[in-house]
């Protein structure tokens, strides 16, 4: 039996750490549930920063290098904060055939950002995804979690302009 270790205190008083702790506790603070823990951090805070990575490493008793390695390996994890809105352009095969490239160009012309970037006013982040599985609605965009199907560049830019 491993000795019961006291778990580190959250880095600050932010209530969202409770969600992270709950996720780690659910998996018995097991090191192999690292990806689950990182998902919990990203769900709560929107991205992973050094503070949270160190906190997860200490809680799960893993070397920070390993946590950093895992966090940077998987595409879904992001180490940069996102803008207030996230526009994910699907670049799956069906969307590609039906013109996802045009959507990305349209957004670039309209807002001056390429996938992976955020507008300077923090309003919009543009990302790409490898198939969101909405191939019947190609080309598809996921805007703040909602799938918008059968998009055209003009309609998408107009939609994004309506965001606050």
């Amino acid at each position: 039996m491993a000795l019961q270790q006291t778990k580190p205190a959250p880095p600050d008083a932010d209530k969202r750490w409770k969600l992270v702790n709950a996720a780690m506790r659910r998996n018995g603070y097991a090191g192999h549930a690292l990806i689950e823990a990182l998902h919990a951090v990203q769900d709560a805070f929107g991205y992973l920063d050094e503070t949270s990575l160190r906190f997860v490493a200490e809680s799960l008793d893993l070397p920070p290098s390993k946590v950093y390695g895992v966090a940077t390996f998987y595409h879904l994890f992001t180490l940069k904060p996102k803008g207030r809105h996230a526009c994910v352009v699907c670049t799956g095969t069906a969307c590609y055939i039906k013109g996802a490239g045009g959507l990305i160009e349209g957004v670039e012309q309209g807002f001056g950002v390429v996938p992976g970037e955020t507008t300077p006013d923090d309003r919009l982040s543009v990302l790409t995804a490898r198939c969101v599985g909405a191939c019947g609605l190609a080309p598809a965009v996921v805007l703040d979690g909602a799938v918008l199907g059968k998009q055209t560049p003009d309609a998408l830019v107009a939609e994004l302009n309506r965001l606050e």
């Binding site: 690292l34 990806i35 998902h39 390993k66 390996f73």
Partner: peptide
């Protein structure tokens, strides 16, 4: 849960991912 890595469909990579590794 996966975290967006196509290679994790390969069985040995998938198992590494379940173990919490790259």
């Amino acid at each position: 849960l996966g975290a967006g890595a196509f290679v994790c469909g390969e069985e040995t990579a998938l198992m590494a991912s379940i173990e919490g590794l790259r």
